[in-house]
């Protein structure tokens, strides 16, 4: 695997500069059922296609940001700081 990723702070870098934070899984806003909790903790959609995910510019500014990436081609559609 190798592709370029754009850090919203620092710009385009090799993906090896970053730590992958996994697909975005929203934390339940109120007490979940045990099944919902287990789904949140342990299940991932693991899509072949567009996925919204967390990245951390670990060897750079250390910011966490969101990206939408096609998991089959590694094409990154957009990146953004959360809330931006």
């Amino acid at each position: 695997m190798s592709f370029l990723l754009t850090c919203p702070n620092c710009g385009e870098r090799e993906v090896t500069d970053f730590a992958f934070g996994g697909e975005v899984v929203p934390r339940p806003s109120s007490k979940p059922s045990e099944r919902e909790l287990n789904t949140y903790n342990y299940f991932r959609r693991n899509v072949a296609g567009l996925q919204r995910e967390w990245w951390n510019h670990r060897s750079g500014c250390r910011a966490w940001f969101l990206a939408e990436r096609d998991t089959t081609t590694n094409e990154v559609r957009w990146v953004a700081l959360p809330g931006a």
């Binding site: 250390r62 910011a63 966490w64």
Partner: peptide, 11 residues
């Protein structure tokens, strides 16, 4: 990393 991740989430 854990702190900054939740900070990013909770703002």
């Amino acid at each position: 990393s854990w702190f900054s991740w939740w900070l990013a989430e909770w703002k």
